[in-house]
Nucleic acid binder design. Structure first.
Lengths: 340, 340
DNA sequence: CTGAAAGCGCTAACAC
DNA sequence: GTGTTAGCGCTTTCAG
């Protein structure tokens, strides 16, 4: 299949550098790897030779000899890739890439086919990478967790079941974010605050429910007006209709994501109610749905780039043998716009 | 910096497979690489051994020996990465990743720092990759083109100046897309069609102007109502205000992207005009701005995932030594919604 | 502190 | 067809 392609090493080898600097290859290797026990003069000579020759170490050779690849994989389940346009996910990739750019590590994007997950597993276990980052979006799927015992792994998003293989993961503090959002509604004087959340088998759906309930309970408010959606605008529309149809007073709404909030807007409007006059609304995610809706949606902003950066940073630390916490929770920020 | 991490090869070596299958290492290598001249029986024996041992070839060793890396880089200028949330770009990445998943190649994401572009150049030229894909979004920046002489490169987006190093690139057919958009406006009976386009030093801005002009000229319509923006909503708002302030009749508008169209909506509304009643509007990009505006925007959809797929496919073909066209133009599709 | 020597796991002529 | 023999370019004991 692939032939013809033999670039024919255009860069000089370590050997050439050694010759030019008048030292052994071992010494050049030491300099390149920053070994402390090399005379300053020798270091200078070698570095000059490296610069003169424009030498670049060969990754494959280095990897083969050191039994380290200097590669970390970013594993993206195919289903997540489908929603790649999801800006939240795109930002994570960006954060990972930026964070890794400052290290010796190289980023390998792997789309793991759901029909053939073994291909990815074999790739990861085949000594091709030093570690891996696994993102699974809202699903909390940690099916790769078992690999964690033999390969350093860091997950994006907490696992559905906490006990699951005791993975390392970084996530946004969904509970706190939802609590803050709800408290904001309460501060605005709302008392009958409904919730539209996501499936309770997804961490995001569950945690945002928890945060809302914490705030409601703390304020001594009734926390029974709850409807469930699937994070889509359509489901938000339906959920709000059900809430409204129940006939109980509602002057505030917290939706577990902006898309469902956008759907809820429609239901609120079709019921002849105004936002925020009759119903104040807070969303979650701070995506374009919230930004472009009328009125602009007050929502919870998540540090998506920061999430990616944190994932990468934590993996690199683990690879360096430094101790790191298994769980890293990133703070959210309430963005107040005109819907509250 | 990075120590401690020595996974300690958990997978068996080719040697082990050879021993188990009772053949030489060379033969195992042949089987693994699908050489045609190996007895069916031997192939079977080797494959069984491979399966039994759960053998996975070591990439570094293979790469070192074959002088081929089986890696292709996806180079993203840092400035583009900033707008990573740009769904168009995210889709390209997705397309590339998906397309590469079916090949022997692995995807290396490289964020090229603009402050230190040499780092990326050295990485690319250091024999770390077999080829590279370079995306530069709307800018048409082909500053890596020079590398194309020594490393197979495929660009996303056409270069600003066509002659520039005669790069290989794939792009969306902006001219045709803009022409179709404008023709649609004409078919709807509009005659005074204005244009808001982007900077003329960006291919996207220039080509969309060209397509609009072609359609206008072909229909014998006046093509002088033109304003320029920078692809942002704010610039679209300003541009439309200027157009309207000029006092000449306008019953149609083609905006070179949806974001500027969204801005133009505001200007049209503030002038007390209706869409599409008074002014029919067509955008370009088919992003969420157009989808969420009121009324939903008729726009030109670009095959963004297809663009990424095409880039990867073309690079892989080049690496395989197959002849491929330097230029690949992907067709666009007009999405008719309620603004026309 | 520096050099010599022995591989890392695999591929690619070259023989047989 | 299959085995033998050299390395690919680098790191890493082990001497000195």
């Amino acid at each position: 299949m692939t032939t013809e392609q033999v670039p024919g090493r255009t860069v000089p080898t370590l050997e050439a550098v050694a010759a030019r600097a008048g030292v052994s290859r071992a010494t050049v290797s030491r300099v390149v790897n920053g070994s402390p026990k090399v005379t300053a003069e020798v270091v200078a000579a070698v570095e000059r030779a490296i610069a003169d020759l424009n030498y670049v170490p060969n990754r494959a050779a280095r990897s083969l000899a050191s039994r380290r690849t200097q590669v970390v994989a970013l594993v993206v389940p195919e289903s997540t890739a489908k929603v790649f346009a999801d800006p939240f996910f795109a930002s994570i990739v960006q954060g990972v890439a930026l964070s890794l750019a400052d290290t010796e590590y190289t980023l390998n994007m792997v789309i793991s086919s759901e029909t053939n997950p073994d291909k990815t597993r074999r790739y990861l276990m085949g000594g091709n990478v030093d570690g891996a980052l696994v993102v699974s979006h809202h699903s909390g799927d940690h099916s790769y967790a078992q690999l964690g015992t033999s390969l350093p792994l860091v997950f994006g998003g907490r696992p559905v079941s906490e006990s699951e293989h005791a993975s390392y993961y970084v996530d946004v503090d969904n509970v706190a974010g939802a609590r803050t959002a709800t408290e904001h509604l309460i501060e605005r004087g709302r008392r009958n605050i409904a919730l539209i959340t996501g499936p309770q088998d997804m961490p995001a759906g569950l945690d945002r429910y928890t945060g809302w309930k914490q705030a409601m309970d703390a304020a001594g408010l009734d926390s029974t007006q709850v409807a469930y959606g699937d994070f889509s605008p359509a489901s938000g529309l339906e959920a709000m209709r059900r809430l409204l149809a129940a006939g109980r007073p509602i002057d505030g709404l917290f939706a577990a994501n902006d898309q469902m909030a956008a759907g809820a807007y429609s239901a609120i409007h079709e019921a002849g109610l105004s936002i925020p006059g009759d119903v104040a609304v807070v969303g979650y995610d701070d995506d374009s749905f919230g930004l472009m809706s009328t009125p602009p949606l007050t929502t919870v902003h998540q540090p998506s780039i920061g999430l990616g950066e944190a994932m990468a940073r934590i993996l690199v630390r683990r690879l360096a043998g430094e101790p790191v916490d298994r769980v890293t929770l990133l703070p959210t920020e309430l963005v107040i716009r005109q819907s509250t």
